[in-house]
Simulated scan of single mutants.
Amino acid sequence: MYKLQPFILNLVNPFGTNHSVTTQRTNAYLEITHLGTTGIAEAGLPPKKQNCYFTDYDDIEVFFKLFQSIKPLEKYDGFEQFKQTPYFKMEDGEAKEFLNSQLSILDQISNDPIHLASKSLFECALIDWYCKKTNKQISQLISDENNEKLKVPNKRNFYTISLLDNIDEVISQLDVGLPYTPNIKIKVGGDLEYIRNVLIGVYNKVIKGNHNFCGLLSIDCNSSWQPETALKFLDLLNTELIQIKPFLYMIEQPFPLIFEKEPWYIVKERYLEQKIEIYADESIKTSQDVVELQKVVTGVNVKLEKSSGYRGAVANFIKAEELMLKKWVGIMIGSSLIANQAINLLGLATIGGDIDGTLLVEKSCHKVEEQFIWHSANSEFWGMISLK
């Protein structure tokens, strides 16, 4: 019934962050076949990083054995928490019963961080199975409003350029993404001179002299800044990088994973004065994380693997909405399958996300077609995506 296997992905360009550089990734791929229908899913597995990325493929295999050892509960409702919301409305029947029985196994396993990506993999495959069995789109199962919003191109999609020692190589990565989107996410560390140089490189290549430029920039710090770094960067934006400031939408996860929050209150206030958002990413796993970070951020980046699947991701979005925080959909590096999973959530996002795996991974690695449309540079909706 369940079939788990490694999913080897070759990358178009070396992908660097402040803790690793990779040219290949080993993700996890799962199939579940029941009653003549097969559901599929993928989990993105970045290199392990303390307090941040907890799971590799070997851990997924250990989880699989644990899953197989647990008996399902009777009359279980895996969507109880959403009963008073517009999300996950289902019709009674054999498909719903099977889905809930399997979710009851998942929910008996702890939400220890090492299990989150595995739980997401299994839940995404199960929900894919359910929606195929009931002839429903996953985006519609999440909510009718979410599905309707995805039919029109009003969500921005960002392409990520990675952190490498050679800035010319970094800037050359734009050649892959620009035909699809002018919205650019830039991976950085804590070196302000590097950040200055890469931003000037991006500006010179795509913005300078282009009066029709309609894109936005995002800086992804991957937990590498201290409060003083953030404030010094703001000074740079108001002096040497003043020409770039109008295009900068957000700073993502500037703070470390374990940090004292109070100094970051001032950072948030200063950035809000300049109309620049601060989003949390790696720090967001549960809705309680959203609550605890509300005073230092203006938004949250929600990923399926960090949230333990669709249910956890939607719960995070609900909490963010309650706290008046902005919402973003992100992905781990993955194939078109991971992108298809993430697009199902995009209708819940405030501005959009970085669902760019199909541009980062070589075409020969993709198992399925994209279920969404990139609106190209020749379109009035350049940089937006919508469901096919």
Rank of each mutant, 00 (worst) to 15 (best):
E193M: 09
K151S: 11
N157D: 09
L150A: 08
F372M: 00
K136E: 13
L116N: 05
S101K: 12
K185Y: 13
Q253F: 09
F381R: 12
Q81V: 13
S335W: 02
G190S: 12
I284G: 01
A342C: 12
C52N: 11
D58H: 14
T55N: 09
V267E: 01
K327L: 02
A280P: 06
L345M: 00
K151Q: 14
Y194K: 08
V188P: 05
G309S: 11
L387Q: 13
A280Q: 06
E91P: 06
G36A: 10
N166R: 11
S101E: 13
I373L: 09
G383K: 10
K295V: 09
F372I: 01
L30Q: 02
Q5K: 15
L66Y: 07
S376G: 09
W382S: 04
G209D: 03
V314W: 00
K268N: 13
H211E: 15
E252S: 08
G44H: 00
E74I: 11
Y249V: 11
P86K: 07
E282Y: 11
A320V: 12
K285A: 11
G353I: 05
G44T: 10
E97T: 15
S69R: 12
V368D: 01
N154D: 14
Y2D: 07
V290L: 12
L304K: 05
C131S: 10
Y53R: 07
E292S: 14
F64V: 03
Q81A: 12
I318F: 09
S101I: 05
W225V: 05
Y249A: 15
I355K: 04
L192S: 04
K306S: 09
I167S: 12
I385Q: 04
G352S: 07
T134N: 03
I373V: 14
I284A: 03
Q24I: 00
T239G: 10
K96Y: 07
G312S: 13
A320C: 13
Q341G: 03
S143H: 03
T38E: 10
L103Y: 10
H115P: 08
I207R: 07
S386D: 06
Q84M: 13
F158P: 04
C214E: 13
L293V: 06
N183K: 00
S335N: 04
G383N: 13
V329H: 05
N197F: 06
D56V: 04
K388M: 02
A315C: 02
E240F: 06
Q288L: 01
G78T: 02
E370S: 06
K367D: 00
L178H: 08
V297D: 06
K96W: 02
T160E: 05
N340E: 01
A95Q: 09
K83I: 12
V302G: 04
F259I: 08
Y159P: 05
L216F: 07
L323C: 11
Q253A: 12
A313W: 02
F54A: 04
